[in-house]
């Protein structure tokens, strides 16, 4: 075989291998989506959004679980978002290459990839045991702890993208660093930071393990943050493992619902980015 034919062969080989890998990845993604839609769409009705989780054998919906998921995700991001943003700001604008910043960055990366069940156990130890019972607030704290490293990382990365020239211009005007950050850097990095927050919401809204140890579940409507609260992931977990067909159907519907919400959030994040990016250029 000539050298040229050999090169063409290698190129073709690499192309087919990477194409195959992509196809395998996409196949499973499509299969999951297809299974979810096929099994979940049948159970989708107004009841899902208006009625509480039912006892085995009777009709019902997922209202308390949807409400609980929204509440805990919101509280989680309200705690984790600001903490993560400020920590990311510290790393990008104040700490930079200092030893402390390097250590924080490393620890944050470890936290980012820590199994979420560990975080659930940590909050169980921290809050649930001390309070003596499961509670929504413990669930929210667990979600916040998961949201923090994601927000830290995205905020830091986005702040690095702000041109040094802008920061220098503000500094040379005699602005103190905090003024430069709030008046120049945050507005310039706005779309990126918002995307990071949306992605953090998407990440925590599907977490199951940390809620299993903290908020647990509630068969009934509850808006008491000090009490156990229903939420979609744990309801899906329990209902899917149950032998009752109506519970299993609700689990499929809930799984489809959560997947679609995350899809909507991700699309929203992209739309926000592009619209804000255009707004900045206009």
């Amino acid at each position: 075989m000539s050298r040229r034919a050999l090169r063409t062969f290698y190129n073709l080989l690499a192309l087919s291998l990477s194409g195959l890998a992509t196809a395998i990845g996409l196949f499973f993604l499509a299969a999951i989506l297809w299974t979810l839609i096929k099994n979940g769409i049948g159970g989708m009705s107004l009841r899902v959004f208006t009625e509480m989780t039912p006892p085995p054998g009777s009709a019902g919906g997922l209202l308390n679980a949807i409400y609980g998921s929204v509440v805990m995700t919101l509280i989680g991001i309200l705690i984790g978002g600001p903490v993560g943003m400020l920590a990311g700001t510290y790393l990008a604008e104040y700490g930079r290459t200092s030893r402390l910043a390097t250590v924080i960055r490393f620890v944050n990366d470890v936290l980012l990839s820590a199994p979420s069940i560990i975080i659930g156990l940590f909050v169980y130890e921290l809050l649930v045991i001390r309070m003596g019972h499961f509670s929504a607030i413990a669930g929210a704290v667990a979600l916040a702890i998961i949201a923090i490293p994601v927000t830290v990382r995205t905020t830091e990365d986005m702040l690095y993208l702000v041109p040094q020239g802008l920061k220098d211009a503000s500094t040379a005007m005699g602005a103190y660093p905090w003024r430069t950050i709030t008046s120049v850097i945050y507005p310039a990095a706005r779309s990126g930071i918002v995307t990071g927050l949306l992605l953090a919401i998407a990440r925590i809204s599907g977490e199951t393990a940390p809620l299993l140890f903290t908020a647990l579940n509630n068969q009934f409507w509850s808006s008491n943050l000090g009490a156990p609260m229903a939420n979609l992931p744990v309801v899906i977990f329990q209902f899917a493992l149950s032998p009752y067909p109506n519970w299993q159907q609700l689990a499929w519907s809930g799984a489809l619902l959560i997947t679609l919400s995350i899809l909507v959030l991700s699309v929203a994040a992209r739309v926000v980015v592009s619209s804000l990016a255009q707004g900045g250029k206009r």
């Binding site: 802008l166 040379a172 005699g174 120049v184 310039a188």
Partner: peptide, 16 residues
């Protein structure tokens, strides 16, 4: 100090 000393940079850098 910098409030008393203006600076113009190589690349025009108006704020967004």
């Amino acid at each position: 100090l910098r409030a008393r000393i203006g600076m113009v940079f190589q690349k025009p850098n108006p704020f967004p």
